[in-house]
Every structure is written in structure tokens, then in C-alpha cells.
């Protein structure tokens, strides 16, 4: 598991070239900036189509939308074949590329335990094309292809619990992070980078345009996501060892997270309650797993 990092330990040097081409208050831009502050130079960054984040100072390559897993595999195997194991194959993908259009290929790469590190900025829809539904879209969120009307209440399904889907592949390291908790995020990047095998870090990256809130509130929204249990911060090793990194005495009500976001504006009290019950039940499972230090299937 990763080791705690403190504010003074954050390097002053940037790993990205700014300004970038993102919207104002972009969570993905924050995720990229934090990630590449500690990623170091000895990487090949892989990208597939996704919303802009930040250009990093590292060499980069990429592939088609559905090609994240295979593309990383090719690089990792070539690095091994060429004897350059000092270089790491890493990725900075979006939620769509990770667990929607690219899910199949990435799952297979995980199952083969390819020596790659995937960082996913999860903004819960295809923001690059204007906010369409992806596997990351949470239940009831209004996306541009989950319209709200008499016949539809926004996204009809819960978002993919991707961390646990990858845990089923018994890969060495899985973690979640949030842009509101930079020290935690960077500690995980640092730790995961040097592990051998498939590792993945999922970063919740709020999107002011797609989630429809004031751009100044990106961190506020991300923080309340963690504090309400919607986006818990945890690590899973070898598919079973489990650690919760942030454990408030009491969760904040999810309304604190939902309210500022107009994508949830249409939700009825019953629907909010449903999500509250769902979130609390899951949180209790996480607490239990944390106590046992492992996931019990």
C-alpha cells in the first residue's frame, strides 16, 4: 500500500506543459497535473481519444479509441524484448476508453497481467464529444444521451464498479483517487509506478461543463464526493488486500454532492434516497473490508 505524503513533499516542479486546451476549472487537467508531478521521466505515455487534459513532458504515443489495452501490451512487450525495463508503459485514459469502448481490450490486458500502469481520469461521460453516456455515468445523471423526460430519468444504470471488475483479474494494484486529495493521489502514483504487472488508478475528475456546476467548485464537488462515500478512496492489492485511505467518522449526506450539479437536478426525493441507501450500504462493505484488510468474495 502507498505511503502518506505531505504538502511540503509535493515537488514544485511541474510534469505538464501549461496552459492546456481544457475548459476552465477542468478536473481532468488537475488529475493530469498531479499525476505527472510524480510520474518521472522514464515513461512512455499512451493516449487514446479523450477530452483534453494536459500535455506531459514525457514521450507519448497512442492508438484508436478501443485500443487502449492492446496498445499498452505492445509497448510493454517490446520494452521487455528490447531489454529496456527501466522504461514504464503508462496510460492516461478517460472513463470511456477505460470501461466503455475500451473495456474488453483492457480487461484482457489485465488478465494477462501486462506490465503497464493505467491512470484513468473519470469524468463520468464522453466529455470530448459533449457529454454522452459512458460506462462511467452514474445512475440518474442527465447526460446528453440520457435525456430526462416522462420516459427517462437520466442514466438508467449505476456506473461500472471498475475497481472491483479489475480486482477480479487478481492484478497487483488498483486504487481510486480524487483531485481534491492531491497528496493521496500522488502517493498512489508514486507507489504504483514501480510495481511489476498491471496496475490501475481511477481518479474522479469533475467536469464543470458536463456535470453542470460553477467551474470554481471543481474541488468542492470532488471533495464532497469523497466525504459522502460516493467516491471512496481505497487500494486493492493482488485482487484481495484492501485498505480505505479516507475514513470520516460520519459520511456527509449525498445531497451535498448531488445538489451543486445540475445533471442531478431532476432527481426526486425517492431517487435521492435510493442513491443514499445504495451508497451507505456500499460504504459499510468498504468499512468491513478495511477492518478485515481484505475483500471477501
Amino acid at each position: 500500500m502507498s505511503e502518506r505524503m505531505t504538502r511540503p513533499q509535493i515537488p514544485l516542479e511541474e510534469g505538464v506543459i501549461t496552459p492546456g486546451s481544457t475548459c476552465q476549472g477542468c478536473g481532468a487537467a488537475m488529475a493530469a497535473r498531479l499525476t505527472f508531478k510524480v510520474m518521472g521521466p522514464n515513461v512512455i505515455r499512451h493516449g487514446i481519444p479523450c477530452c483534453p487534459d494536459q500535455s506531459s513532458k514525457s514521450p507519448s504515443t497512442g492508438s484508436v479509441f478501443e485500443g487502449g489495452g492492446p496498445c499498452l501490451t505492445g509497448t510493454a512487450r517490446a520494452l521487455k524484448a528490447l531489454g529496456r525495463t527501466d522504461i514504464k508503459a503508462i496510460a492516461f485514459f478517460g472513463d470511456g476508453g477505460t470501461y466503455d469502448i475500451g473495456f474488453g481490450g483492457l480487461m484482457s490486458a489485465a488478465q494477462r497481467n501486462e506490465n503497464v500502469f493505467v491512470v484513468t481520469k473519470d469524468n463520468e461521460a464522453y466529455m470530448n464529444t459533449g457529454g454522452q453516456h459512458s460506462g462511467g455515468s452514474p445512475k440518474y445523471a442527465e447526460t446528453t444521451t440520457d435525456a430526462v423526460g416522462p420516459n427517462s430519468r437520466g442514466s438508467p444504470v449505476h456506473k461500472i464498479n471498475a475497481a472491483f471488475a479489475f480486482a477480479a483479474m487478481n492484478i497487483p494494484y488498483i486504487a481510486t483517487a480524487s483531485v481534491a486529495f492531491p497528496e493521496d493521489l500522488m502517493a498512489k502514483v508514486k507507489y504504483a509506478k514501480d510495481i511489476e504487472g498491471f496496475r490501475i488508478l481511477l481518479i474522479q475528475s469533475p467536469c464543470p461543463v458536463g456535470w453542470r456546476y460553477d467551474p470554481a467548485k471543481t474541488i468542492e464537488v470532488a471533495r464532497s464526493g469523497v466525504q459522502s462515500g460516493i467516491w471512496p478512496l481505497y487500494e486493492i492489492e493482488n485482487g484481495s488486500s484492501f485498505k480505505l485511505n479516507y475514513k470520516p467518522k460520519e459520511l456527509k449526506p449525498i445531497t451535498e454532492y448531488l445538489k451543486p450539479q445540475a445533471r442531478f437536478r431532476h432527481m426526486t426525493e425517492t431517487e435521492v434516497n435510493e442513491i443514499q441507501v445504495y451508497t451507505t450500504a456500499k460504504w459499510e462493505k468498504y468499512l468491513k473490508a478495511d477492518e478485515l484488510k481484505q475483500i471477501v468474495f
Binding site: 514544485l12 501549461t18 496552459p19 476549472g25 488537475m30 494536459q54 492531491p182 460553477d214 470554481a216 471543481t218
Partner: peptide, 30 residues
């Protein structure tokens, strides 16, 4: 640390200073 564009430079006297060409005015810092 929360600025998405690294548009605030951390100066020697331990204060932030705006890098004008990088700031998009999102207001996260405030």
C-alpha cells in the same frame, strides 16, 4: 496545488503569483 493550469507560481516569499498567460479565470483558487 488545486490550479488546473499551474497558473499560480509559488514564490520565494511563500506566496502565490498569477502567471497571466496561463490563467483561464476558473476561480478554483479563490
Amino acid at each position: 496545488i488545486y490550479c488546473p493550469e499551474a497558473a499560480l507560481e509559488w514564490t520565494a516569499n511563500n506566496k502565490p503569483a498569477m502567471i497571466s498567460r496561463s490563467c483561464k479565470g476558473c476561480g478554483v483558487c479563490a
